[in-house]
């Protein structure tokens, strides 16, 4: 168990690495999926966001 004292901590150690791998695999598999057109609604949102930033 990689020198670890109990199976629960050993599982935590593995789960950390496994979840990071899951994220990496998901991201790379879906790298080019879900591209969307730049809508007027989104443009409006970005413009207003820029206005808000100015007030800060």
């Amino acid at each position: 168990m990689l020198g670890l004292g109990d199976v629960w901590v050993f599982m935590a150690y593995l789960l950390c690495i496994a979840s990071a791998i899951l994220c990496a695999v998901y991201g790379f598999v879906k790298w080019n999926d879900d591209e969307e057109p730049y809508t007027d609604e989104a443009k409006r949102w970005v413009q207003e966001e820029a206005e808000i930033e100015k007030t800060l």
Binding site: C23, A24, V25, Y26, G27, F28, W31, N32, E35, A42
Partner: peptide, 16 residues
């Protein structure tokens, strides 16, 4: 972000 595609990609980098 521009689209959900960027969120997909960010998952890979964020997890690591």
């Amino acid at each position: 972000v521009k689209s959900n595609r960027e969120l997909n990609r960010a998952v890979a980098i964020g997890g690591i």
